[in-house]
């Protein structure tokens, strides 16, 4: 659960964006600014409990504390700037459907990696992207998927002594997957 927790409030935002505007995503921006301020407050509290100063010198909380203060000030400054209308137009709007499909497929792949093993899950992942997303022919999709799953797995294992995950299901593991 990395900093994901801290970002949790932000990461929901892209899905519910205002429709069809190519201008600056104002609501997304305000939400991010609020989240950054919240993050700064959280880190300040954490840093204080870690200890700012010890008998050896600066403590574990010293640096994070300074950073949290900086983050708070900067976020407020950013907010003030955007209120003052000093913002320029933002970057091009991403294709959210495409982004969501890629993200979900990656999350599913990562979730299945330890369960089904690398070979099965990567095969499914590649087939999905090649056959259905990229709309390639069966032959090419199959060849590439097998190469990317079983081929990479064995290449890494034999050639590089690097072990990619094997399946946790005994039946599949027994088949060498």
């Amino acid at each position: 659960m990395s900093r994901d927790q801290a970002y949790a409030n932000q990461t929901h935002v892209p899905d519910q964006q205002e429709p069809q505007t190519h201008a600056t995503p104002a609501r997304l921006r305000t939400a991010t600014q609020a989240a950054l301020v919240a993050l700064a407050v959280y880190i300040t509290v954490e840093a204080l409990s870690l200890g700012l100063w010890t008998s050896f010198g600066p403590g574990p909380g010293f640096f994070p504390f300074a950073l949290a203060v900086a983050l708070g000030v900067l976020s407020v400054a950013w907010f003030a700037q955007s209120r003052a209308g000093r913002e320029t137009a933002a970057a091009e709007r991403p294709d959210l459907r495409h982004a969501a499909v890629v993200l979900v497929s990656l999350l599913v792949l990562a979730g299945l990696l330890d369960l089904l093993g690398y070979q099965v899950s990567m095969f499914l992942f590649l087939m999905f992207h090649l056959k259905w997303r990229a709309e390639r022919g069966w032959a090419l999709s199959l060849v590439l998927s097998v190469a990317g799953s079983a081929g990479v797995f064995h290449g890494f294992e034999q050639g590089l002594l690097v072990q990619l995950p094997a399946s946790a299901i005994p039946f599949l593991a027994g088949l060498g997957l």
Partner: peptide, 9 residues
Amino acid sequence: ATALTACAP
């Protein structure tokens, strides 16, 4: 694929 296997130590 060949590159992968070829460099097997």
